[in-house]
Nucleic acid binder design. Structure first.
Length: 935
DNA sequence: CCTGTCACG
DNA sequence: GACGTACGTGACAGGG
């Protein structure tokens, strides 16, 4: 196609780009043979982006990539020191130079280079030709040496910063228009290219002089008139050198190029050439994308690591991209953010991390966001960092410089974060999802490295990011303490200087991305993909909604109770002091022990590790039969516990904005698969004692609504019956019998209709003991009976239910062989201590026996929860709390029965279809205006 | 920061 | 033969 008016030529400065890419990007290597290809990869991505982006009205009609050829040019003939201070080309870059040319040809783009000339001269010549032909030119480069070409239809574009450079930008840089740039450069010189210029004169002064005299020649001719003696002398003395410099910096617009503009017309890449080449380079992502765009099938790239690569479990591979905090980008404006968004859309995933002012997701404010799409490449977008102030009373709280508008950044990111085609990767994503949600962004879909670790390594170690990074990437991240301190002098992340924040925050995203790349394929090999996808990951959106909903807590109720407890405690305290004959701190076990066991010489005292007397409740209970003082202390302790932990602390947790209490569930906290509730813990609200149970009256349904409580009846015993395959238990459950009574009947040969509460109580204790990995000692203590008697019960139990012992033995044997035990749904709980010697051994054995039972129950309710939202969709109900075997809902008055039916169906059928339980799951339901009534 | 105690399933 | 033992959690107070 002939080049002429209306045509648009793109000239890509290939040499400059790969140099910049080489230094800016992490040293990526080809997996199969370790060939360094980081710069080529950056180049290919840039080219592909240009191809993709340039389909609009401003699309180029002609394009070429221009390279330097050789190191000797006509400038060296003029000045032998030209570019003489250049370092040797880095060893890892050298092999990438020819590959870049191959890449250009593979994309079917003209590849230009000419002996004796620099790429800049080719660009200059073609630009001039194009301009004369009436066309437009975009030079893809940020090289200042090319800025003299800008103007009259020629502009530049910085591909790495994604910014265009026009006349204004050139003026901003050089202080003169493009046509006078060479004059300024001639005076200022250039240390990079070793252009001498005028000593002592920089760009600022040069621009000043040129603007005053019009151009370099006039300036030099009239140098005598310069007022400043030093400048005058310099210009006069160095005239020759300055004139040489101008020749060096002036690009040759009339060199003999070997191509015509017409030959540079844009051509579609040939899939049959391009795809095999990309595959050979092992660029997985871009190969896939190009194949999609060209409607061709992506060639298979074998995932064949270098022969020297170690086993992936042995630690980080040696070719791993190193961590370089200085490579992380501080995103300051929309253009820079847009570059990241484009990269994310191109690769289809992104690691995301938010920085906030605190750990409470319902109260913390967003301070910044970090992103990473490739190991070693991450950015931080600061949004609400404060300008450095003393943080004191007179700190004006102004925002620091270099930050995007928060709303604007979120508006730009929202489509990506909510894009179903872009996977968002996080470490403990529930936290970030809640933060984003408060800013109107519902992040999805997600992957969570913490939960991947939990699925694969539950029981082996914790799943915090610092630990995972150290263990699996061999990298110790910057501790947050280094930035915000700890204790009293702790500051918020908003007060951290942005330079530091970038290194910390971007590193977190980088680490998360690397962990994800490592874990993702391992999930499958560890056979826990289903566990992760059905039991862990679905908890994130479900718990997010529950936690954000919160539960209404009546402050007045708590406050009144608190006062009542205070009065009662004061009264008890007086009585205790009276009985003791002296005043002491009742709340101090140490002081209490001294009163009881030293002063009063009561029996049964034991000392703990610290040498202080131990005064647990059971010891005091024994003493209470004979003495008033320990009985009063027990009452006091109950009051004290209820007051401090519940009536007082709970009030502090009422969110002032919502009037509700928002707990936070840890998905990966408990080894068995149970959730854990924190800040506050709503899974241990009192219920067993009458006084304690009244705390639940403060947990209320909001106006016009009702609280529902649905809980699994005896779920762990049912699971035991199934797993250990105990006929008698299964039958009792199938018949809907009272399981503890049935156990008692079987063990003690008492007909059900003659069952006494006492016998049933003992059987109940044994049933629980079995689940916990029974021991004579433990049962004896629990039932307060002699150890021999307890052992007799156990023996009899195992006689009647031999399958239980078989299950226990088999489970321990499996754990010893494999190092883990499994739930019915495939969750693995590792038991690293199982082969330990000494007292640890007993613990580990019982934990191994208990884990599949407790864990399966945990899996069941997780499955129910994952299905619950769609099941109750359309009903005026929402799920608020989970307490291991119980779910709490808030529903509109009148909808109770309908919701109970639907929820019960989901809960009772939660094991289906993955596991066909040999026992029915039964759910009991309650309702009321508060939790005490509903339970 | 650790220990003891006690709230829950 | 002695030792130490129910399983899983989290929060608070005391004390070093």
């Amino acid at each position: 196609m002939a080049f002429g008016k209306g045509c648009h030529l793109h000239l890509i400065d290939g040499s400059a780009f790969i140099f910049r890419a080489f230094h800016a990007l992490p040293p990526l290597t080809r997996k199969s043979d370790g060939l360094p290809i980081g710069a080529v990869s950056g180049f290919v991505n840039m080219i592909w982006k240009m191809v993709e982006d340039n389909k609009g009205p401003d699309a180029p009609t002609h394009v070429a990539v221009v390279f330097d050829k050789g190191s000797h040019t006509f400038r060296n003939d003029m000045y032998d020191l030209y570019k003489a201070n250049r370092d040797e080309m880095p060893e890892d870059l050298r092999p990438q130079i020819p590959l870049t040319r191959d890449a250009t040809r593979a994309f079917n783009i003209a590849c230009l280079e000419q002996e004796g000339y620099e790429a800049d001269d080719i660009i200059a010549t073609l630009s001039c030709q194009a301009r004369e032909a009436g066309g437009r030119v975009t030079i893809i480069s940020s090289d200042k040496d090319l800025m003299q070409l800008v103007g009259g239809g020629v502009e530049m574009f910085d591909a790495m910063k994604n910014t265009r450079i026009g006349v204004e930008e050139v003026e901003a840089k050089f202080g003169v228009g493009p046509e006078r740039v060479i004059d300024v450069q001639a005076l200022a010189g250039d240390s990079v290219d070793n252009v001498p210029g005028a000593p002592g004169i920089g760009i600022k002064t040069a621009a000043l002089l040129i603007n005053e005299y019009g151009d370099l020649e006039t300036l030099l001719d009239r140098a005598e008139e310069i007022k400043q003696p030093k400048r005058r002398q310099t210009l006069i003395e160095n005239r020759e050198q300055i004139e040489l410099s101008k020749k060096l910096v002036t690009l040759d617009c009339e060199m003999p190029v070997e191509v015509t503009l017409d030959e540079l017309d844009v051509k579609e890449p040939d899939a049959e050439v391009l795809l095999p080449w990309l595959a050979e380079m092992e660029f997985r992502t871009v190969t896939r994308r190009v194949a999609e765009a060209l409607g061709a099938e992506a060639p298979v790239i074998e995932d064949k690591p270098a022969a020297t690569a170690p086993d992936e479990d042995a630690g980080p591979a040696p070719e791993a991209v190193p961590f370089k905090p200085e490579a992380y980008e501080w995103v300051k404006d929309e253009a820079a953010l847009q570059v990241w968004i484009d990269r994310i859309l191109q690769c289809g995933w992104v690691a995301v991390d938010t920085e906030t002012t605190g750990l409470n997701e319902m109260r913390a404010d967003l301070v910044g966001i970090s992103l990473s799409v490739e190991p070693g490449q991450a950015c931080y977008i600061p949004l609400a960092h404060k300008a450095s102030g003393d943080g004191g009373l007179f700190d004006d709280g102004k925002l620091a410089e270099g930050q995007m508008d928060l709303d604007r950044a979120l508006a730009m990111l929202k489509p990506v974060l909510e894009d179903a085609a872009v996977l968002k990767i996080g470490q403990n994503m529930k936290y970030d999802a809640k933060i984003f949600s408060r800013y109107g962004v519902e992040i999805a879909p997600i992957d969570d490295t913490m939960l991947m670790s939990y699925a694969m390594h539950g029981g082996e170690h914790g799943h915090g990011m610092d630990l995972l990074s150290e263990k699996y990437l061999g990298h110790n991240p910057i501790p947050i303490k280094d930035l915000i301190g700890s204790g009293k002098s702790q500051i918020t992340f908003a007060q951290v200087p942005i330079e530091e924040a970038v290194k910390y925050a971007a590193e977190d995203a980088d680490i998360t991305l690397r962990l994800w790349q490592l874990f993702k394929p391992q999930l499958h090999r560890a056979r826990v993909t289903t566990v992760y996808e059905t039991l862990e990951r679905p908890m994130v959106p479900v718990l997010k909604r529950m936690e954000m909903a919160g539960i209404k807590v009546n402050r007045d109720t708590l406050s009144r109770m608190s006062n009542a407890f205070s009065q009662k405690m004061a009264q008890l305290e007086d009585e205790i002091h009276e009985l003791a004959g002296e005043k002491f701190n009742v709340g101090s076990p140490k002081q209490l022990g001294e009163i009881l066991f030293d002063k009063m010489s009561l029996p049964g005292g034991k000392k703990g590790k610290t040498g202080a007397w131990s005064t647990p409740a059971d010891v005091l209970e024994d003493l209470a039969t004979e003495h008033d003082l320990p009985a009063r202390v027990l009452d006091w302790r109950q009051m004290s516990k209820l007051k401090s932990t519940y009536t007082d602390a709970l009030q502090e947790h009422i969110n002032p904005d919502t009037g509700r209490v928002h707990t936070s569930y840890s998905i990966a906290g408990a080894n068995t698969g149970r959730l854990a509730s924190t800040d506050p813990n709503l899974q241990n609200i009192p219920v067993r004692s009458e006084e304690g149970r009244r705390i639940r009256e403060a947990f209320v349904a909001s106006e016009g609504k009702t609280l529902l409580s649905l809980d699994y009846s005896q779920i762990e015993l049912r699971i035991l019956a199934h797993i250990a395959d105990i006929e008698a238990l299964k039958e009792a459950f199938a018949a809907g019998q009272d399981i503890h009574a049935a156990t008692a009947s079987e063990m003690f040969n008492v007909p059900l209709d003659e069952m006494t509460p006492e016998i049933r109580r003992q059987a109940k204790a044994i049933n629980f003991g079995v689940i916990y990995g029974i021991s004579g000692f433990g049962l004896a203590r629990n039932l307060r009976i002699p150890r021999a008697e307890a052992q007799g019960f156990i023996d009899r139990y195992f006689e009647r239910f031999p399958g239980i012992r078989d299950y226990m033995d088999a489970t321990v044997k499996f754990a010893k062989e494999h190092g883990y035990v499994s739930t019915l749904f495939g969750r693995r709980i590792h038991t690293p201590e199982i082969n330990a010697k000494g007292p640890h051994a007993g613990f580990a054995k019982r934990a191994a026996i208990n884990a599949p039972i407790q864990g399966t129950a945990a899996d069941v309710i997780r499955r129910a929860m994952a299905r619950m939202d769609p099941a109750i969709e359309g009903l005026p109900a929402r799920m608020l709390l989970q307490v291991h075997d119980e779910l709490i809902f808030e529903v509109d008055e009148g909808a109770e029965d309908k919701v109970i039916d639907r929820v019960r169906e989901v809960m009772e059928g939660a094991a289906d279809p993955a596991v066909k339980l040999a026992v029915p799951l039964v759910v009991d339901a309650g309702q009321g205006a508060n939790w005490a009534e509903a339970h």
